[in-house]
Design a protein around this nucleic acid. Structure first.
Lengths: 237, 237
DNA sequence: CAGTGGTCTAGACCACCGC
DNA sequence: CGGTGGTCTAGACCACTGA
């Protein structure tokens, strides 16, 4: 077992508390001095770990006051991992979802291609429509590696989202996205309740945990109801 | 005059050499030890400045070898500013562009809304189709603030792109993007030579320099020929 | 081997905040 | 005033590279 660097351990310590909800938004995290003692680390090391989290948007810091958990999931990356339920709630909308399909997926060329031969026979598949104020906003077609997320088939999707479960079960380490414009097929059109010829944004997303592919998802958004926004500012200064 | 911090001065020293071309791509920049002497700085300070540039994608570092100027403008953001000509060239494709329109834009509600009343009467507009291997890949409809980019109407777009000119004339400080799926109108369909009902990716991008809005562009990509990809990895490790 | 970057320590001085 | 973060110093040990 490879020993992680001290600053990474401090980073993970903070991130874990943020992601599991122990430290909610605007919660003040322990001061540099406190964490120094806790990890027997020098101040530079603690400071560096926190500062990087601040750069990434997880933390905001105020001189003389302390360091606090930032209000939102970080947005430094446009396609930041985000939970659709959270996103809708943050806008003040009403969220609910409809589970359309949830089964163990049969071995197929597709699962083999995506998850590799070793995992392809232990994959679940779910299809969920996510609604904002009663209107479909996202169609989620997801494949999940049951080796890493064994409870997936027993989840209650009325009280949790796939994203929330996966975050807690298999801490995200890497994500890969591809984004494109497509026309939905008839089934997708029905789920999303869109007109003929309405273009949609399609995001294909793979997420890894512990070096293993946890999940592959295709997220479809009606073009008329959704757009991504992002601000990019180079440098710190 | 406010004295800048030492690490910022080191940062600017390196960035300047990259941006004015003194240090081209893959050029090895001075070692930490060299810069320490040059600025009478400690190693931690030099290291921090360079490391942040590496995080932002300007520099890549190899232990035991040195630090080098990265091949491209940083890619830490999925919708990083990128030059379409460069991107096509990087893939080994043949690039050319067709200028469809280039005029000073009349004062209009649109220009006023985007650039504000003070600048709305000094705006240029260009429409350019960008081709990869003879096939249209991007339709660029761009508005440019002539106060900040006075030569825009005299540019030779066969030898330079709007993006290249703007980078040199008005150093980019901030960019804002919005990304959506749309169906092209008849004019756009003709420029891009796409079928009926082919969905397209539309990116709306505003770029600022020195606190002023320099340019607003709408970039349209055929859905069948283009997709965005990105990898997101939290943390550094 | 000398040179490079990766990480860390144990201090230091400062600016700012809230009591 | 004490606690906080912002910045910097002067060392140290390590892993890796290339001659």
């Amino acid at each position: 077992m490879m020993k992680q660097s001290l600053s990474v351990r401090i980073r993970d310590y903070i991130l874990t508390h943020i992601q599991d909800g122990t430290w909610p938004c605007d919660h003040r995290i322990p001061s540099e001095a406190t964490i120094m003692k806790q990890f027997s680390a020098s101040r530079m090391t603690v400071h560096r770990a926190i500062k990087e989290l601040a750069t990434e948007g997880y933390i905001y810091r105020e001189r003389g006051r302390g360091s606090f958990v930032a209000k939102r999931i970080p947005r430094r990356d446009l396609l930041e991992i985000s939970d659709i339920a959270e996103e809708i709630a943050a806008r003040g909308g009403t969220y609910f979802s409809a589970l359309k399909y949830l089964e163990r997926e049969k071995l197929s060329p597709i699962t083999t291609h995506v998850f590799g031969p070793d995992n392809a026979d232990n994959i679940a598949r779910s299809t969920i429509v996510h609604f904002e104020n009663g209107i479909p906003l996202q169609l989620e077609d997801r494949y999940v590696n049951l080796t890493l997320a064994p409870d997936y088939l027993e989840l209650d999707f009325t009280t949790t989202t796939a994203h929330q479960y996966l975050i807690h079960t298999a801490p995200l380490q890497k994500a890969e996205h591809q984004l494109m414009a497509v026309l939905p097929n008839p089934e997708q059109k029905e789920y999303l309740q869109v007109q003929d010829n309405e273009p949609c944004l399609l995001i294909k997303r793979k997420t890894w945990s512990g070096g293993e592919l946890v999940s592959y998802a295709e997220l479809l958004y009606p073009g008329s109801r959704y757009s991504f926004g992002g601000v990019f500012t180079p440098g710190n200064k």
